[in-house]
């Protein structure tokens, strides 16, 4: 790998720009894609690799290319700088998520409680407008406070977020769905919300609940049957 290619890869990472490192096998000639100067079929194959986030070898003509997807991290927006969020944030990074904690309550959302984690003190609906959740974003609400959770869920339901989870018992969740329904959301749309959040592993402590949330995030991202929820009865 040349210093130029390495520098271009690092620049793309810093700019959070998705790129594909294409390597011709076996001689090792490399380029970054997309690049209009490269053949259309190579650019098209690279676009597919970025979309699926699965690197692989493709044969174009009689040449093998290894197409290595370099997507920016998935995003996890956590509403509520609570105890569970403290357990969740350091766990989510190594699993591939760039974490932002949203909580206007500064005594909760402090650097001391969340060292090295991006924090927003905006109201959740404003924060969601700013972050614009896309298909590579997960939104998890943990405050238990409808004033904070509901506006975030309202915005999340209007977004392409691939995962929406809300902490709370079944009864809390039923009440929540009632409030969101009053805001105009249909039962079908609200089925996207995973409540109670996380895989059912009978989690009790904050780290256990964080584990159940991470486990469900991974299950959904990787297409595991464990990530499928039954429609609410």
């Amino acid at each position: 790998m040349t210093p130029e290619i390495l520098a271009a890869l690092e620049a793309a990472k810093a700019a959070k720009r998705p790129v594909v490192l294409a390597t011709r096998l076996p001689d090792g000639a490399q380029c970054l894609l997309p690049d209009p100067a490269q053949p259309a079929d190579l650019n098209e194959a690279a676009a597919k690799v970025l979309q699926s986030d699965e690197s692989g070898t493709v044969r174009l003509g009689d040449t093998d290319w290894f197409l290595h997807a370099h997507n920016p991290p998935l995003r996890l927006i956590v509403v509520g700088a609570v105890h569970i969020a403290q357990a969740l944030a350091p766990f989510a990074g190594p699993c591939g998520f760039s974490v932002t904690i949203v909580d206007p309550r500064r005594s909760f959302a402090s650097d001391e409680r969340f060292p090295g984690v991006t924090i927003s003190h905006a109201w959740p609906d404003e924060a969601m407008d700013e972050f614009v959740p896309d298909s590579r974003t997960a939104v998890v609400t943990l405050t238990h406070d409808p004033k904070l959770d509901d506006p975030a869920l309202d915005k999340a339901l209007k977004s392409d977020a691939f995962y929406i989870g809300a902490l709370g018992s079944r009864r809390t969740h039923a009440a929540r769905l009632g409030r969101l329904k009053a805001l105009g959301h249909t039962d079908e749309a609200m089925a996207r919300i995973r409540g109670p959040v996380g895989l059912n592993i009978e989690a009790v402590t904050a780290p256990e609940i964080a584990l159940s949330i991470i486990a469900e995030l991974v299950a959904v991202r990787r297409g595991s049957p464990l990530g499928e929820r039954k429609k609410p009865a």
């Binding site: 986030d53 997807a69 370099h70 997507n71 991290p73 760039s98």
Partner: peptide, 15 residues
């Protein structure tokens, strides 16, 4: 492949 997984190794190598 997500950067936080794969790219760190390349960053380590570059370092």
């Amino acid at each position: 492949m997500n950067m936080s997984d794969s790219e760190d190794i390349l960053a380590t190598a570059a370092g």
